[in-house]
Design a protein around this nucleic acid. Structure first.
Lengths: 262, 262
DNA sequence: CGGATCTTTGATCACAGTCAAAAAGCGTGG
DNA sequence: CCACGCTTTTTGACTGTGATCAAAGATCCG
């Protein structure tokens, strides 16, 4: 079963921007479109390097296992994100983590060596790839900061808002796109902690029932976390939510947050 | 005062590998060599973007401050590492963190826009830049994993070994190159915790007196941490220490670790 | 020698991890 | 449509690690 929204237009992927239409089409045609059902694996930690992937629709969870059996989620790639991209340019001969679909997902697949050659001779593509990797690095740094400074509740709150920004969900009500186990792992906390934390967030105006989430008071939620985060001024999530203006009056309220609450 | 070892040969930097000698020299000449004394700042969070830097010798600490006054160390760049590199390819107009010298340091400075053009037209340089950023991402992922799965003691142990690998220190005795405050911050723990942790590590065969560190039993220390880390098989630190063979017999012992201890 | 800064030590506490068990959800097949 | 088994999630009780606050020691440097 593979129910995936057909919104998956490769030509709008960030990696292919600022490239002549002709070349872009060539690149897109060279990629193999593949569909993965929830739970399917793209590759396993230790497999010999072969392809890298661009997520067109859905989400890919990248993870690793420690010798004592604990699973670490390294990243959660959504539309536009690259999976295994960093492998192209390092000297590893095998994948450094496993990757599997967190929901039904469509990706574009490229042979690593072919793509590396393309990048070498194609300046604009190289810049886009650099931008993608830079973004990864930046995100990783923010996640690390949150692990250090945020409580579990703050990390969950931040994640929920990011979900809204990424998937264009209305904060007033949406469904979690992945299992709670996946989310907990991505946030670096135990499932039990995640579960309990969702209860606590009721006090901050977040209602959760099963997979359905409703954020009653966006303003309150932002006060709860953004005031403790060092990137507050340049947070992509917040900017997206504001820019979108998730319903007239709300927008105005949110705009003021950055200054007013500590 | 600027006592820096003169070993700072730019032509051996990874960023300039696989580039024709002529072009490499041109690149190196285009960069401005700058010296920073311990504590000097390269740029501040929020400054308008201007330059990026390649560390030639010494170390640069990159950090950010949360609104409630907590300082987060985003990264610690040593010889060969790039500072502010990711800024070149993202759309930010200002630095996303501050950067200052953790010890006396020499860097090569390049104007961001000039370098971006160079990368666009120069395939090999683009690949090197991509490799550098990939490595950053990879490191960030490992650090995040350690924050989640390692105890403070394990993180400190891992850091000490990495120091040896990076600076070519003998594990049998070396001096910490940065202040304990800096190290604690980089490891995402409080100074007090770091201090206490160093005491505890005595049980694992690590002697610390002031800034002097001596690792009595490398084998024991690796058992203490690597067995719980998911990258064990591909750890650059361990590989470096082994490859170097930090004294005949030790080398043999260490080699066996990967398999034998859980 | 005096005054910074940096580090250590002490006592206390809260957050999140762990183990264990119950409950809810979900797909399959009778 | 319900019963069954399996997976996912929730709830409960307990514990340990590391943060916090506070104060004393070191160390560095003018």
């Amino acid at each position: 079963m593979q129910t995936v929204t057909a919104s998956a237009k490769p030509e709008t992927l960030p990696l292919f921007q600022d490239i002549s239409e002709k070349e872009r089409d060539e690149l897109i045609k060279a990629g193999k479109t593949r569909k993965f059902a929830k739970g399917d694996m793209l590759f396993m930690h230790g497999d010999t390097l072969g392809s890298f992937y661009i997520v067109t629709d859905g989400a890919i969870r990248q993870f690793r296992e420690t010798p004592d059996g604990k699973e670490i989620t390294v990243g959660l790639a959504v539309r536009g994100d690259i999976v295994g991209g960093s492998h192209i340019f390092e000297s590893f001969k095998a994948y450094q983590w496993s990757a599997g679909a967190a929901e039904n997902t469509i990706v574009l697949e490229y042979p690593i060596f072919w793509f590396k050659e393309k990048v070498k001779s194609h300046g604009a593509l190289a810049l886009n790839m650099l931008a993608a990797l830079s973004q990864d690095t930046h995100r990783a740094a923010v996640d690390a900061e949150h692990l250090i400074t945020f409580t579990a509740a703050q990390r969950v709150a931040c994640f929920l808002l990011r979900l809204c920004a990424l998937y264009n969900f209305s904060p007033k009500g949406f469904d979690l796109p992945y299992s709670k186990t996946t989310i907990a792992s991505k946030l670096g906390m135990e499932l039990e902690t995640f579960s309990r934390t969702l209860q606590k967030l009721k006090e901050a105006g977040v209602e959760v029932k099963g997979t359905q989430v409703a954020i009653r008071d966006l303003h309150q939620l932002e006060c709860f976390m953004c005031g403790h985060c060092s990137i507050s001024e340049d947070c992509a999530t917040i900017d997206t939510l504001h820019g979108r203006g998730c319903s007239g009056s709300e927008q105005v309220v949110i705009r003021k947050i950055k200054g007013e609450c500590l």
